[in-house]
Simulated assay, not measured.
Amino acid sequence: MSVYPDEEQAGSFALGSSIYGGRPTFALVRDETGNEATITLYELLPTEQADARKRRLERRRRQSSKTHPFHEVIGEDVADTEDWTWDSWVAMKVRQLSGSRLRCLLQLFDEAFRDTDIDPSLITGTGSATVLIPEEPGVRLSLGFIGVKPLQRVDRMRALTRGVARMSLEECYYWHAKCRSPNSPNGAKALRTLLAKHK
């Protein structure tokens, strides 16, 4: 399943958002109502960058996610927010999951947070929670959230989750670029075909 992008593509994603100096660039928001839990993954971006992406998507007649002011989504008292200035940042929804899609993705949280100090139970437990996460686990989780969203069969959801969990970090960045780029409209479909044999 190994995918090796060419040198030009590798240069475009290898740095990721390291230019932000270690700032978290993703957030997970868990909401629980009654017996139903939903988890929403957001990508955190400077307003200028989010607006530029939105314009590129609109030029290619592709739907873009609505952006929300950072504190509207994240709140004021979430751990780690005080370490950074967020006034010119927005939260862009990647996907929201619940039910069987969310259950199939739970093992990916353990894999994504393995090399961090984030306790997966903050998100996979009960109640409401918001957690800021670094770019690397965020990129891996993005692939899971994007990949399982349209799937109907649980076996395909599990296959996709296992495939993403086994990917190297470089492969995750490559597929994240393909899935989120305005220039690659079929990136998510290609990922599902590769990992879950879904067309």
Rank of each mutant, 00 (worst) to 15 (best):
R30G: 11
K66R: 07
P185Y: 08
V90H: 05
D117I: 08
R55G: 08
G22R: 04
A129I: 03
A52L: 11
T126A: 12
S65E: 15
G75K: 00
A177S: 11
F13T: 11
R55L: 09
Q63S: 13
S168C: 00
N183M: 07
E76M: 02
D110S: 05
T38V: 05
Y20W: 12
K149A: 15
R23Q: 13
C179D: 03
D87M: 07
R95Q: 15
W175D: 14
P182Q: 02
E170P: 09
Q49Y: 14
R180N: 14
A112D: 07
T47A: 10
P134C: 10
L169H: 14
R158H: 13
S128V: 07
D110M: 04
R166H: 11
V131G: 11
P24S: 04
A91S: 06
P5C: 03
G144E: 00
S12T: 13
V90D: 05
L151S: 00
L151A: 06
T85H: 02
V94I: 15
D115R: 08
A165G: 06
A188N: 10
T40H: 01
D115I: 04
H176Q: 11
T116V: 04
M92F: 06
W86T: 06
S12K: 12
R59Y: 12
K189Q: 14
T47L: 12
L132D: 08
R103K: 14
T81G: 00
E7G: 10
Q152L: 14
R114G: 02
Q96V: 14
F26H: 11
A177D: 10
L160F: 04
S64Q: 08
I74K: 01
T161M: 10
Q63R: 15
P46T: 07
E111N: 09
L169N: 15
T193F: 05
D80P: 03
G163C: 09
H176D: 15
P69R: 03
T161S: 12
G138C: 03
R56N: 12
E58C: 07
V148M: 06
L108F: 12
Y173I: 05
S18Y: 10
H68N: 04
R180L: 08
R103C: 01
R59C: 02
V90I: 00
S121I: 05
R166G: 03
V139R: 01
S65I: 01
D80R: 13
V94G: 03
E32K: 15
A165Y: 02
I19D: 13
Y174K: 05
F70T: 09
G163M: 02
D83C: 03
F70C: 04
R140H: 05
S142Y: 03
Q152T: 15
G16S: 00
G147Y: 03
R62M: 08
D155W: 13
R23C: 14
L195R: 00
T47G: 06
Q96H: 12
K54F: 00
I19K: 06
I74C: 03
T116K: 01
R166P: 11
L45P: 07
E48H: 06
S18V: 05
P150A: 00
D6W: 12
R53S: 06
F26P: 12
A129R: 13
M157W: 02
E136Q: 09
F70G: 02
S12Y: 07
S18K: 15
